[in-house]
């Protein structure tokens, strides 16, 4: 899923300080799963904004609504009759949400309420970790099913750098060296030979480096 975290409340308050009718718009997709942008969080953020306004004797109206998904025009359409009632919309979907809203409602003032972090999953309760860099050409099968592009700080494809120490990456004791994990796993599986093969330079054409991406599947085009 796409993992996000809420922006600092101070930053959100600063963004919407000139607006009095605010809609907090949640999303039932990934951000609901990672507990940051669903209906529950939309309600909490709306209450927080109201409390903050009360403290400064500011009169504001805040409401919340949660869409099935903000990355689908069909669901974004759902708020078409509501949008004009508000002078600011805070989307707490991933970075896709504010953009789909901005494209569908060009005159509306849309603000991002979360910072989109990465594609990953929950490794523990309350802890998420990156797994995919969206390079567009998956190669995890060469590395014991683990991705060095997303998980090695240097995206190395030919083994661990000289900074790997005690299973940790040179950048921080909080970051696992994925190459340490890959080498150990392949050694245990008796497949170390596969890592001795030279991995040639990767084509990044399919990654973000090749320009903004889109996908067309003819069989689905109406």
């Amino acid at each position: 899923m796409i993992v996000a975290e809420q922006k600092p409340i101070k930053e959100i308050l600063e963004m919407v300080k000139d607006y009095n009718k605010i809609l907090v718009l949640g999303c039932k997709g990934c951000v609901t799963v990672c507990n940051v942008g669903g209906s529950k969080e939309a309600a909490i953020l709306a209450s927080t904004l109201k409390i903050a306004a009360r403290k400064t004797n500011k009169k504001i109206e805040v409401e919340e609504h949660t869409l099935e998904r903000q990355c689908d025009p069909e669901y974004v359409d759902e708020v078409k009759d509501m949008i004009d009632d508000y002078d600011a919309i805070i989307s707490i979907a991933c970075g896709v949400g504010p953009q789909f809203l901005s494209e569908r409602y060009p005159s509306a003032r849309i603000f991002p309420g979360v910072n989109t972090k990465f594609m990953g999953g929950a490794v523990e309760h309350g802890m998420w970790s990156e797994r995919c860099a969206g390079c567009g050409t998956c190669v995890v099968h060469h590395f014991g099913g683990l991705c060095p592009i997303a998980r090695c700080s240097k995206s190395l494809l030919n083994g661990p750098c000289g900074g790997s120490s005690d299973g940790k990456c040179e950048i921080s004791q909080d970051v696992d060296c994925i190459w340490d994990i890959i080498v150990r796993k392949m050694t245990e599986l008796g497949r170390l030979e596969e890592l001795l093969e030279f991995m040639p330079p990767k084509s990044w054409i399919t990654a973000r480096d090749g320009g903004p991406r889109r996908l067309i599947r003819e069989e689905l085009v109406i």
Binding site: P160, C161, G163, S165, G167, C177, V183, T187, L192
Partner: peptide, 12 residues
């Protein structure tokens, strides 16, 4: 650096 056993293979 670690993993130690891999280092000579990386050199190769």
């Amino acid at each position: 650096a670690e993993p130690f056993e891999f280092r000579v293979h990386r050199l190769a």
